[in-house]
Design a binder for these strands. Structure first.
Lengths: 240, 240
DNA sequence: GTCTATACCCCGATAGAC
DNA sequence: GTCTATCGGGGTATAGAC
């Protein structure tokens, strides 16, 4: 309901700019991202880009949202394509996270690396940001539900020595957040899920940022070992 | 055996420069670090700094080594001060890592955040870099050795479903590296130690970089829960 | 909407006087 | 060893012609 041609052209240019920005991001990292550089890449002059993005920070925000959404969608798709077996869904989801990260190291650095100094992510980013973690939590919830008593081990892993404060108020926010998305997890599983998410991220981060140079030679194989043990700690069996 | 006065003055200025650089690092991050800025901070002109550091990258390298060493020393000291009980040493070492990181977020970002584009860490950094991980591995080795059969659980945690490749060749480099420092770990414990190190780092990283905003409210308490469970997974009990 | 031109900052690094 | 001055590059952002 409006001048469609002009609007469509605008959308096209906007997509071009975003694509060029992601190119720069992917192989040079967030700090190397500048409006001038992407302007050069798309054959525009820098001031023209300002008609599409009021500032460099707005471009960063758009990239942040696009990346969070792309990663989240990749995980959700992998999960959906993995069939009904929770252990297989877990493997598919975790592998999807790593695959995307390895394919887009600059974007990974934007999402999970050091924050860009002087830039604070606005509120619009928090929902896309939660998407991946929620997808993981959903898989865990289903796995734990269906694993209860299915094999010899209890659905909720025992925590004989994990003392201070049980699940405690430290993670109360997580309970609230998950509940608002219709996900309920036993306390112990909740903490284990947070840990697993941190471990998956930490492992990929170590691999991409070069901290495995003299210890892990095969990132692929090692990652599979890690997620197998994480599933184990969560009370179900990973299925490869 | 040389002109001491002049040399001493030089050392003093050098220390001043490094201190100023660490200041900038701590509250602005690695990318904001420039020779000109630190020159202003110490009241010098930029060209004068080049008499002490041939390039910005050399300054970065010096900071990298200083930070790795400071973190490593903090962990080693905490370990040594914790007494003989392995579970207590583990808690002390892990807490020391987090304390240092929280106190120096910019330095943490330099060591473990996104790599600075265009800068590649030289070989001199790898030994200091390994110091912290080695300290952790030593604690684990001692804990596992003394925990064997001490309580009901075996010293080496069982891995019922952790299939692909046992410990596998993926971590063969880690075996070699540890052995060169006189540390031997059972395969399963080795993988678990690598995982624990990734989890500790990932947890601190999430906390510092703002990924726990709607899930973890008390970083201190949550971290203690995490390291308790990690010890459990490694086959011994954390002692708080 | 897109261009040129510009104001005003930053940076790394070097030359040469003192 | 420290200074001034400078080269040559980068950047954000805006004004105003077309």
């Amino acid at each position: 309901m409006a001048p469609t041609a002009r609007e469509l052209a605008r959308q096209t240019v906007l997509a071009d700019i975003l694509a060029a920005a992601r190119m720069r991001l992917t192989d040079e990292g967030p700090v190397a991202l500048s409006l001038r550089a992407v302007a050069r890449d798309v054959g525009m002059v820098s001031s023209a880009v300002y008609r599409y993005f009021p500032s460099r920070d707005d471009l960063l925000t758009a990239l942040l949202i696009a990346d969070y959404d792309e990663l989240g969608a990749a995980v959700e798709d992998a999960d959906a394509a993995a069939g009904p077996v929770p252990g297989a869904r877990w493997v598919a989801a975790c592998r999807a996270i790593r695959s995307w990260s390895v394919a887009h190291p600059g974007d990974f650095a934007l999402l999970f690396g050091s924050p860009v100094p002087g830039y604070a992510a606005p509120r619009e980013t928090v929902v896309p940001a939660a998407r991946t973690a929620l997808a993981l939590a959903r898989v865990v919830a289903d796995a734990v539900a269906s694993a209860s008593g299915a094999d010899g081990r209890p659905g909720s892993p025992s925590a004989p020595t994990a003392a201070p404060g049980a699940a405690g108020p430290a993670v109360a926010d997580a309970v609230t957040t998950l509940r608002s998305f219709g996900i309920e997890l036993p306390d112990e599983v909740l903490v284990r899920t947070l840990m697993a998410w941190s471990t998956v991220f930490g492992t990929i981060s170590f691999e991409l940022f070069g901290h495995f140079v003299s210890s892990v030679s095969d990132g692929d194989a090692y990652f599979d070992q890690v997620i197998a043990r994480l599933a184990d700690d969560l009370g179900f069996a990973a299925a490869f």
